[in-house]
Amino acid sequence: EARELRGWNLHVPDYPGSIAMEKFGEILAEKTEGRYTGSVFHNGQLGDQRFAIEQFALDGIDFAVFSGGSLGDFATALQIVSMPYIFRSAEHMYAVVDGEIGERLSDSLADHNMVALAWYTGGARSFYTVSKPINEPADLSGMKIRVPDAEIFVSTVEALGANATPLAFGEVYTALQTGVIDGAENNSPSFESTRHYEVAKFYSLDEHLMVPEALVVSKTLWDSLSEEDQQTFRDAARESAELQRELWAEREEKSNAILAEAGVQVNVVEDKQPFIDAMGPVYEKLVNTDELRALLQDIQAVE
């Protein structure tokens, strides 16, 4: 009997992750000969991230892509992947989540009726500002920086000496324009597609956050699968993650070209150490269990 799986997605249909999710469904349909098909609901139609995570426990959604940060509000182990400057590079992040640590993170989601099958990239978030580039933490001192409504962002930005200003995403453009805020932070595709670069001309690549995104399926569904089907699901997920990472890199390149064309001044932060040093209190406050401390050590040990 054919079963149509409901997939939740936050982004617009032509986003790298969205295309990769559709691909996941297509591979499943093909490999299981139509016994399982994926039907993806884009744009957060079925509820925002928090509510969607809750719907897993209620068996309302069968698969989804959630950012590690949002999952961290539910499963504490996941908080570790959204710590600032925790990954040295994209390669480091992939090595961590694709390996044994990825399995441990997936296990921690069991309480919330999820199994993480593969990991997408959420890109690297950096600061963009209106008046001057950021080369050292002192440059941020006293600036009003827009952050999403989450503890980790507020703590990180405040540890760097700026004023964290939680503001709805849709308000950022005018807020930059009118000087309500001095800057914000995001990955380059978002910076570009929101046209925030029209009003914030400095993009400083400090890459403070590199948060992986989990492609999860419902544990109820997972446990009902034969071993063979589980392998099919896992392969499909891996393949879709590979596609997403490729598409993301392409998308980043495209965005960077647009930013360069628009005369945005992009500067790579050469010495990240002062930024990392400033994170002491954030780590002290948020890495506060033995489980998190162990994960931190293991992540740092991955080559």
Binding site: K144, D149, V154, N163, A164, T165, P166, V180
Partner: peptide, 14 residues
């Protein structure tokens, strides 16, 4: 908070 104290309260929205 935003315009006078120059520091936004972070709890008001929630």
């Amino acid at each position: 908070g935003r315009y006078v104290l120059n520091s936004s309260p972070t709890w008001t929205e929630q």
